[in-house]
């Protein structure tokens, strides 16, 4: 993989308006049900996401992501289980 030298960060560390591609998801960090919901909402390996909004002032939680043409809210605890690489 030519891109393996790119830095991976977890999704919660993404800045606003930054676009990234999901590299891997730690499915063990959540229940089976939650994993299924995550995938149902389009959050899965290989998908491009953009961070659009974050929660109330003082908190970076939850965050709103653009997944495809859909906007999805995710909590920080789940975002931390998702590794992304920044798109250029």
């Amino acid at each position: 993989m030519a891109r393996s030298d790119l830095t991976e960060i977890t999704l919660d560390r993404l800045s606003l308006r930054q676009v990234a591609q999901i590299r891997s998801v730690d499915w063990e960090a959540m229940s089976e049900n939650e994993g299924r919901r995550l995938r149902a909402l389009g959050l899965d390996e290989g998908v491009a996401v953009e961070k659009l909004h974050k929660g109330m002032f003082g908190f970076n939680d939850p965050i709103a992501l653009k997944v495809g043409r859909m906007m999805v809210a995710v909590r920080k605890s789940h975002a931390m289980a998702i590794s992304v690489v920044l798109s250029d």
Partner: peptide
């Protein structure tokens, strides 16, 4: 129980 997540689609 563990603090449940918050996963939700926000429609247009």
């Amino acid at each position: 129980g563990p603090n449940a997540g918050f996963l939700m689609e926000m429609p247009k």
